[in-house]
């Protein structure tokens, strides 16, 4: 899912090493997930000791984007890169399908139902048909299309009688 270009040899750092390091950068609204799990890295261009990272924003109004950009820069400088550029990848539209399998497992463990994989073809019925992340029951109802952050919807589990949230498909 991540396009990588290594433009000079010998390589100072491999794309895999960079991705591994970027697992340390988290979305502050869902601290369980790294930006790599979220599929926010569009492209890495490594030129010797210089690197350009193209970041794909999730929700348009996500308030964490500047903070994330800053953290990416800091982390890569820490690795020893000399020149770090973090730019907005405007060629790729982020969808929830970009969340990795590992990311989906982490969401579940964090108490957020992962979004159905659907490339944006979700319906109100499919959104409502989620299982409770606490007890696994499918006897749940959709309470709101919105939740405590832009990426969540609110549900109620009739089985364990708890409100829970789901990561919205987009």
């Amino acid at each position: 899912m991540v396009t990588t270009h290594t433009l000079s040899d010998p390589t100072f750092m491999t794309a895999d090493q960079v991705l591994q390091a970027l697992h340390d950068v988290h979305d502050p609204e869902i601290p369980a997930l790294s930006i790599v799990d979220l599929g926010m890295i569009g492209e890495l261009i490594i030129q010797g000791e210089n690197i350009t990272v193209k970041l794909i924003p999730t929700f348009i109004a996500c308030p964490a984007l500047d903070w994330i950009r800053h953290q990416v820069k800091e982390r890569l400088k820490q690795m020893g890169f000399r020149k770090v550029e973090v730019v907005h990848d405007d060629q790729t539209v982020w969808t929830s399908d970009r969340i990795s399998e590992e990311g989906r497992r982490k969401l579940q463990a964090f108490g957020l139902t992962p979004p159905a994989r659907n490339c944006g073809r979700w319906t109100e019925a499919s959104l409502a048909a989620v299982t409770c992340p606490h007890c696994g029951s499918s006897n749940t109802v959709l309470r709101s299309f919105f939740g405590s952050t832009l990426c969540r919807s609110t549900h109620y589990c009739n089985q364990c009688r708890q409100v829970f949230e789901s990561f919205k498909p987009v």
Partner: peptide, 20 residues
Amino acid sequence: LEEDIAMSSMAQDKIGHALA
């Protein structure tokens, strides 16, 4: 409460759209 959250979330979305 749900509507308070919905209107606030849509407000945030829309201001974000304006910014973009």
